[in-house]
Design a protein around this nucleic acid. Structure first.
Lengths: 181, 181
DNA sequence: CTAAAGTTTCAGTAATTATTGAAACTTTAA
DNA sequence: TTAAAGTTTCAATAATTACTGAAACTTTAG
């Protein structure tokens, strides 16, 4: 399994970006490789293509499954496991987005909720408590909004995204709508 | 500078989350501390509160400035530098969001653009090229959309966010609007 | 100009995170 | 039932990233 220079370029880049996207180099490379290949690949092919150990691939697959980014397929008469991306590019991006929300926002939201329940004891903590409330509200809004986006169909999302510079017009529109009813 | 248990709790949590938010533990703690304190703090106070070295604070401040998250203030007759959050919670979140877009999306977008220009040579690369195009389009849409959000006033953004479950209604509305005109 | 107050830098080291590879485990064809 | 094919686990180690603290640098009051 030798990669063409161009594909190798893409795969290596995704490896470098991997850690910024919430995983590590190997995993970034693995996603890239799977996405760019029409046919599913075996663990050995992945290891060979990326020049990494078989064990590393196994751990990577496991991680990618926890992100729901790969699926396993089989070829009749062949007992090897073949791996492929779990859905379209759009599906994958959505899952990464969702998973990151879980890791980056949810734990904090839950801590802040608890802290708000406790109330502020000393007057010195009054300001702190206020700031915590503000952060909490912000995170909650983001969470609700992102859940909302997840609920939209890809087509609706496309429409929304493509609204582009007319977003503010839509907001105005919504205001008018509210006033009428 | 001793922190109350509750504030310490918050600060430590932000430290743990720091790396998930795109920086490191120290920096997460520093932002938390600055945000929770009404008065600006000196570098020494920060070092003492967080029990970290003075040098580490200096590097942290530098990093926070590159994210545009802190501002420096002075007290007349005192030549020490005092640090405070650079704007409201909402401003800070916005900056983090923007900065992360720059680090996580822009480099890839630029690589993909180049790769698309090169075109696909072998037919074997045809599929790869297609996938790259799809990723490119997705990232470009996200970029445009996020620039759009940055342009909205906080109030407009609030309105948009609070649309919540009526987002899809607004999209339908927009469709109707388009058909009329 | 100079010394005191304050800040930054960076080489060395500590802490964390990723990777290998060999051994253990699992599955299946015969 | 067993041995060959395939997969997973995990202790050891490599690679990366973060932190300290002492020395160098900068600023300013007198």
């Amino acid at each position: 399994m030798n990669l063409s220079p161009r594909i190798e370029n893409f795969v290596l880049h995704c490896g470098e970006m991997g850690s910024r996207w919430g995983f590590n180099r190997t995993i970034g490379q693995m996603v890239a490789l799977l996405v760019i290949h029409e046919q599913p690949l075996t663990a050995n092919e992945i290891a060979e293509s990326l020049k990494i150990s078989r064990g590393n691939v196994s751990m990577g697959i496991k991680e990618l499954q926890s992100w729901q980014l790969v699926k396993v397929t089989h070829i009749p008469g062949d007992r090897k496991e073949y791996y492929a991306p779990n859905g379209s590019i759009w599906d994958l991006a959505n899952r990464v987005f969702e998973e990151r929300r879980k890791r980056e926002i949810d734990p904090t939201l839950s801590l802040l909720r608890d802290q708000i329940l406790e109330g502020s004891e000393s007057p010195e903590e009054e300001y702190a408590q206020n700031q915590i409330q503000t952060i909490h509200d912000l995170l909650e809004t983001i969470t609700k909004w992102s859940a909302e986006l997840q609920r939209l169909s890809p087509e609706q999302l496309q429409t929304l995204m493509k609204l582009g510079s007319s977003v503010s017009k839509v907001i105005d529109l919504k205001d008018k709508l509210l006033k009428k009813s």
